[in-house]
Design a protein around this nucleic acid. Sequence first.
DNA 1: CATGAATGAGAGTTCATTCAT
DNA 2: GATGAATGAACTCTCATTCAT
Lengths: 194, 194, 194, 194
Amino acid sequence: MGEKSLQKKKYILETARKVFMQKGFKNVTMKDIVEACDISRGGLYLYFSSTEEIFLEVLHMESEQSDDVFSDSIGDDATAADILAFFLNEQKKELLRKRDTLTIATYEYYFESNVPKKENILKIQFDSAVKIIEKLIQAGVMSGEFSCEDCLGTARNIMYVLEGLKISAQTRGVTAEMVDRELMFILKELGIKE
Amino acid sequence: MGEKSLQKKKYILETARKVFMQKGFKNVTMKDIVEACDISRGGLYLYFSSTEEIFLEVLHMESEQSDDVFSDSIGDDATAADILAFFLNEQKKELLRKRDTLTIATYEYYFESNVPKKENILKIQFDSAVKIIEKLIQAGVMSGEFSCEDCLGTARNIMYVLEGLKISAQTRGVTAEMVDRELMFILKELGIKE
Amino acid sequence: MGEKSLQKKKYILETARKVFMQKGFKNVTMKDIVEACDISRGGLYLYFSSTEEIFLEVLHMESEQSDDVFSDSIGDDATAADILAFFLNEQKKELLRKRDTLTIATYEYYFESNVPKKENILKIQFDSAVKIIEKLIQAGVMSGEFSCEDCLGTARNIMYVLEGLKISAQTRGVTAEMVDRELMFILKELGIKE
Amino acid sequence: MGEKSLQKKKYILETARKVFMQKGFKNVTMKDIVEACDISRGGLYLYFSSTEEIFLEVLHMESEQSDDVFSDSIGDDATAADILAFFLNEQKKELLRKRDTLTIATYEYYFESNVPKKENILKIQFDSAVKIIEKLIQAGVMSGEFSCEDCLGTARNIMYVLEGLKISAQTRGVTAEMVDRELMFILKELGIKE
DNA sequence: CATGAATGAGAGTTCATTCAT
DNA sequence: GATGAATGAACTCTCATTCAT
């Protein structure tokens, strides 16, 4: 596959990504993507042979890019509390964006698929987020910012609450206040009185 | 609509329920339900005119029946901790049943619809569950079983964790151990050393 | 068939008539009539077995009633010109009523059917109207009101113009002015300067 | 849409035209056209999305082609009477063809639709025919072939009679003699003794 | 007589997928 | 590589008609 082909493939993925954000996973047809990309029906099949295949690649693209978030945006002298606050705030923004997210598409996709666990991106991301948060909490405990008995448990708890907020946002609707309230509750448990 | 019609309607709803449990919401067609019920194409339309309509009635059926769960199965002399443990255990069983649940169908349905908040069953159930848990915790605090500063906040936190576990169970998969671990964490926060 | 049955049959026909006026012939289903009559599906089949059968009976009802129009509403001392004017005015009113008429249903019905000529009500009505107009014109000629060389030809011509106006009204739309203009033209030919 | 597509579209329209001639408008389903064209169900939808759409294009095709009738078939030295006779004869042939005509389909279509007047082809054709006939009559009056007081009125009258004959032909049936008789009557009014 | 539940045929429509160009 | 016409399967939905009650 030449350079030009790679370009086109990337173009398709980026366009498809927008489509998935708008319509979720199950509602998206090959036709939708063909039309959004303004290419020919047959053309799309040269690169991908199903929406599932496309979606998986979109997801990979996504996870590669999101790896950098932490490192990019945080200054060197940030405290653990700062970083955690930053992370939670990012999550909050994501939560409240509602339709402009791959969340629904991702859930819908994983509802269907019997993806082997090892390759389940959701799982990988969840687990790695837990680890990061755990490290963060430990650092905070070291520096006296936080107090907690079971850092790993707390990290996991935080992630489940976030997951709960995420699905709530997409199904029942949540307001900024509701998110804040839950995040506060979490932080309080860590001994922060912010 | 006569008695017999009501019987049949109920039969359809119960059969459709199973279909939704197996296939979620979006994958279910009127044809699927027709075949599961072993009735004619037109016959189904006498009772319902879309999968959405059917699903909503299934959901209502469901929520009416689940109202009784608490009252039915708990002895009069149960302590707050007993009741909470029972409730969490029910949730755990539900969580682990995975495919045998309306969870996915429900999420899929609410992903799509812009149901007015007031009528959103998910919201109603969540909110009422929060209240019940709050009462339970208060009772436990009174009786010295639990200790907590912010009972309402804790109740909400519990529900969000459960919600997070629920979606995790359907997308990443969770084991009994993973659920237990989270429930333990919650109970520990309440001052229980179980 | 008892008295009561006859009543019911008549009720159905009168109700169906309204339905045909609103929807034409081809658009009317047995279901439409059942619903308009508020009777049971099976009930309708006790009396009629197709929309065609119903429509034909409606048409007969109609033609029996319309026979009286002339005799009923015209005074004894009316001149030929008066009567002709009255007749044309009735036609004009009918024409302009547009949707409140069996015209479309009738046309639609006869487009389809291969009715033996003898039983074709349209033909019978047309022919008898021609005869009446011819008589009228002859009477007018006798009394010096009209002048014409070919009374039968003129009568026929009048009827074809009316027919032309009728179909125009239903397809292209005609205004009162357009109808008047054509009727004037006809009357002028008869030597009337009205 | 390429050249080949245009060819196919034209082929579909021509085939559909025959179907409409045989079955009218309302009786024609997409399936009928698919079968007549011997193409696939989905194939038809690539070009048209409803029988209405197809019919309208058939009608346009028709009206474009019929524009030429006059100019094509008449010699330069024809008198007004010749041309009028030719025109009426064409109409007569059309009338008597009965089933081999778009007449019924057209009427059925315009019974239904609330086409804005400006775009109503029936109206456009009627009005333009009136104008042509008027011109013809005026020319005939100039050359001494015809005599008439109200040329426009006469032209209109002729068209309404033709319209009346047309609908009569489709509903009651008319014979060649009946048409001739009416045309004679019209010509006599113009002072022709043919 | 009357009801209305039930059936099944048939029309409309949309797409995934293929394939000749 | 790229196109887009073509196919056919799968769904949705509506009714005429029947029949047990």
